[in-house]
């Protein structure tokens, strides 16, 4: 108790004595802000739960997700040890859901490693450089923005071939323009601020200014936007899966599972509904978390 109290005091100290303490302290304060937001914590809790499910899928699953048993097909939830019932090929929906979480999280991770980064680079360079660089980069962005996202992703997948990796690539290629727009807008306001002028007067070049001074301020709004977009990304991936252009059968991707359940939806509702609930849960969780992140990462935070 006393050591945890000591740690808390150390973290909340108004006079940090080292770089490390100052950094940890600012993280800790962000965590306190996030923790005071109940909804965001619920989102975080659901996400943590889903990630744990994905990691421990082999231990939690009651059946082999790929094992077909035509004698057991379309069993309702709870029957014969199948927690969420079985699908048209007699596969256990609960186990498939667990393994499907791996695929969904894999897709999300890949997309967030590509799209925001591309958007950040394009947006900040365009905003900071201005002139013809800005014009060219922003028109390219506009072209990407002008296409409906799913259609563009479809076109890419059609060109690259079906499969999860290509689906991710297609989603990333369609997801970056909004990030570029945000990063550019942020850069335009930041670049005329006095602290950027001040570092310019210290002789810093454009590369240093963009990467060390503008990026840290853009990243917060991008992180917020990414968490809010997560839901959309998962839905697009599910949409591609649903259209048969994402994950290929028999892989238990959630969108593909809904697609398979579609033809039975009137008589056997659970086949499509349960993966649908899973998509709903993860999307909602990301949205709630994103909302909380907005409070934490707002640079205008008031510490009084």
């Amino acid at each position: 108790m006393s050591t945890s109290q000591g740690l808390r005091d150390w973290l909340l100290s108004e006079e940090p004595t080292s770089r490390r303490q100052a950094k940890y302290a600012s993280w800790y304060k962000g965590w306190l802000t996030l923790r005071s937001n109940t909804l965001a914590m619920m989102g975080l809790f659901v996400l943590a739960f889903l990630i744990l499910c994905a990691i421990f899928a082999p231990f939690l699953a009651t059946h082999d997700p790929f094992a077909q048993d035509l004698g057991q097909r379309l069993l309702p939830p709870g029957e014969d040890g199948h927690l969420f019932g079985t699908d048209s090929l007699g596969r256990d929906i609960y186990s498939r859901l667990l393994y499907g979480a791996r695929i969904s999280i894999y897709i999300v991770l890949l997309v967030i490693m590509v799209a925001p980064l591309v958007g950040l680079i394009v947006g900040t360079v365009s905003g900071y450089a201005g002139g013809w660089i800005d014009v060219v980069l922003m028109r390219v962005t506009d072209i990407f923005l002008a296409f409906p996202r799913l259609i563009l992703a479809l076109a890419f997948v059609a060109a690259l071939g079906a499969g999860i990796e290509n689906a991710v690539l297609a989603i990333s290629l369609t997801a970056w323009p909004p990030y570029a727009r945000i990063a550019r807008a942020e850069t335009l306001t930041i670049r005329n601020s006095d602290y950027i002028h001040a570092i310019k007067l210290q002789g810093a070049g454009p590369f240093r200014i963009v990467t060390k001074h503008i990026w840290p301020l853009c990243i917060s709004s991008l992180v917020i936007r990414v968490t809010l977009d997560m839901a959309g990304i998962i839905l697009t991936a599910a949409g591609l899966g649903f259209l048969g252009l994402g994950a290929q059968p028999p892989s238990p991707e959630w969108g593909a599972m809904i697609s398979e359940g579609r033809q039975y939806i009137l008589d056997y509702w659970w086949v499509a509904t349960i993966p649908g609930i899973a998509i709903f849960a993860i999307s909602l969780a990301f949205n709630l978390l994103g909302d909380g992140m907005r409070d934490v990462l707002d640079p205008k935070e008031d510490n009084s």
């Binding site: 601020s193 602290y195 002028h197 007067l201 210290q202 002789g203 001074h213 840290p216 301020l217 640079p299």
Partner: peptide, 22 residues
């Protein structure tokens, strides 16, 4: 820039909000 430096009007706007004094 090693000979000439400038101090700005608004001290609330002239320091990067995410950087420590150090």
């Amino acid at each position: 820039y090693s000979k000439v430096q400038m101090v700005f009007q608004d001290p609330y706007a002239s320091l990067h909000p995410r950087q420590t004094v150090d």
